[in-house]
């Protein structure tokens, strides 16, 4: 094994340890399922291994890996139309509501509406909520990961937050989901 190969091996362990949680968390929030997030986290790091030699520090390692994660998430979304599949999964994950005080029940249902609402947004809005809102990346980092301008991140984020609330209200009032929100 030559020095470069040795270094490559050390890099991937370090990179994995440093970023695996972040990648998982991003994917989890994007698709709403632990099982799917675990599978896709593996897919992301396999892609990282294969393309590590192409990493040219055009951005930080973190944003580069999350950029790959974004592509993996969107690929998966296209393949399986995640919003319908995981809305069902989320319902199964809900705790039983029996015996809960009224206020508690109301809180739990609201949270479910928001979870479902997020999964009904188009990927670009879902992404900006997950990265900027939930994961609290800076506007600059979010823009780098999504490959757009910082101004667009700000505009999309405000729009997406408004939409997620509107969809949640719609689900609450109609008792059902709506079609994908553009």
């Amino acid at each position: 094994m030559d020095a470069r190969e040795d270094r490559g091996q050390q890099d991937i362990s370090g990179i994995y340890r440093m970023y695996s949680k972040e990648v998982y968390q991003y994917l989890y929030h994007f698709i709403g399922s632990r099982e799917a997030a675990e599978d896709l986290t593996q897919e992301v790091f396999v892609r990282v291994i294969k393309s590590l030699h192409r990493f040219e520090e055009r951005s930080s390692m973190r944003t580069w890996i999350l950029h790959i994660a974004k592509h993996v998430a969107i690929d998966e979304y296209r393949k399986k139309r995640l919003q319908t599949i995981f809305a069902g999964t989320l319902l199964k994950l809900l705790p039983s509501t029996e015996g809960l005080p009224e206020k508690e029940l109301q809180d739990k249902e609201e949270r479910t509406h928001f979870e479902k609402a997020l999964l009904q947004l188009k990927p670009k809005y879902r992404n900006v909520i997950v990265l900027r809102g939930i994961r609290e990346y800076t506007v600059k980092e979010t823009a780098e990961i999504l490959g757009c301008t910082e101004a667009k991140v700000k505009v999309d984020f405000h729009r997406a937050m408004k939409m997620v609330k509107e969809v949640a209200l719609h689900i609450y009032e109609k008792g059902a989901g709506v079609n994908e929100i553009s």
Binding site: Q9, S20, Y28, E38, T41, Q42, F45, V46
Partner: peptide, 21 residues
């Protein structure tokens, strides 16, 4: 669920080392 299971992280690390090799 937003925090990954530690078992998952360990298992995946082992898998990735194999893939990388």
């Amino acid at each position: 669920d937003a925090v990954p299971r530690s078992e998952f992280l360990h298992t995946l690390e082992r898998k990735l080392v194999e893939v990388e090799q």
